[in-house]
């Protein structure tokens, strides 16, 4: 397996997973907004931070700052050419990468990615408005899942496949913390104190939904949604495939099928320890965001170690 190809496989799966999570986040946020009573206001701006694109946003919409409008944020996250981290940008990156490794993956994967790309080009503008947004988003999510399905069903379990899995796992762990981050930033601005607790529950339900986790949460936790329980589920559940713990544990199971590099295992275990030792009760009481940032830094250094160990030979 060429280092360049491994690098591209890893990033290809990251971008596909990122696109899917971005689509979900925007879709669920729009739904939440519809459910809100008139006394509450939905803050769109924190979604921009989710994808780590605050600077690009400020450049494109210098006037909107804190009170960013739904239209601006949705456009920015979905299709804005000025945002390299938009849904369209992620799909385009995935496609450009795939062009260079077309010989490695089955032809259908190229067709599937090309379909999403063409679909976004054709329907992206129309998909911004509330009327068609959900259709648009669901179509893109389906497309991304089709790619994941093709990879799972049709790709040989060689070392290249391990890089695909590693990319997906790391991207999902990262996106999960980012969506928790956004959920903790007070998406909802209650206009009176008594609504606040009810809103917090709605908000965490929305976070769970953004991660396709709501139904699984209900089945596993069997209690109404509270910040502590939602956080525990998304960080530490060992059976839900988008929880941080699950993704990192999967990383541990992947490593033995890859060329052995001690630094990668060590880096992975460090961040896994952080997750295991986290106390959701304490996090929910205070502000969970610094911890999410700490995890993201851990993922960053894990990525650097992987890059150094496998892609820069």
């Amino acid at each position: 397996m060429l280092s360049r190809v491994a690098d591209n496989l890893y990033w290809f799966s990251r971008y596909i997973r990122r696109a899917e999570n971005t689509a979900r986040l925007v879709g669920v946020s729009g739904q939440l907004q519809l459910d809100l009573p008139r006394s509450a206001r939905f803050a769109w701006r924190p979604l921009v931070e989710t994808v780590g694109a605050a600077d690009a946003f400020a450049k494109l919409y210098p006037d909107s700052a804190d009170s960013a409008s739904e239209a601006d944020v949705v456009r920015f996250l979905l299709v804005d050419p000025g945002n390299p981290l938009s849904l369209r940008g992620s799909v385009r990156n995935a496609r450009e990468i795939l062009r260079t490794i077309r010989d490695t993956l089955p032809q259908e994967v190229w067709e599937a990615v090309n379909d999403i790309h063409l679909y976004i080009d054709e329907h992206g503008e129309r998909g911004l408005g509330r009327r068609y947004r959900l259709d648009f988003i669901n179509h893109v999510i389906d497309g991304c899942l089709r790619v994941s399905g093709l990879l799972t069903a049709n790709v040989s379990r060689d070392v290249g496949y391990q890089f695909l899995r590693l990319g997906t796992a790391l991207e999902q762990a990262d996106m999960t913390t980012r969506i928790i981050d956004a959920g903790s930033s007070g998406l909802l601005r209650a206009r009176s104190g008594e609504d606040e607790e009810a809103f917090r529950a709605m908000q965490w339900m929305s976070v769970l939904r953004s991660l396709a986790a709501y139904q699984m949460y209900r089945r596993h936790v069997r209690q109404r949604v509270t910040p502590e329980l939602a956080l525990r589920f998304l960080l530490q559940n060992d059976q839900f495939p988008r929880s941080v713990l699950f993704c990192l544990s999967r990383g541990i199971t992947i490593l033995p099928s890859m060329p052995s590099r001690d630094a990668v295992g060590a880096s992975l275990k460090r961040v896994l320890d952080l997750v295991r030792k986290a106390d959701p009760v304490k996090l929910a009481k205070g502000d969970p965001r610094p911890f999410m940032d700490q995890l993201q830094r851990g993922f960053g250094s894990l990525h650097d170690t992987i890059h150094e160990a496998y892609f820069r030979t």
Binding site: M1, S3, R4, A6, M258, F311, T313
Partner: peptide
């Protein structure tokens, strides 16, 4: 040599 994930 090719640069591979296993080394050259």
């Amino acid at each position: 040599y090719m640069r591979t994930v296993y080394g050259p």
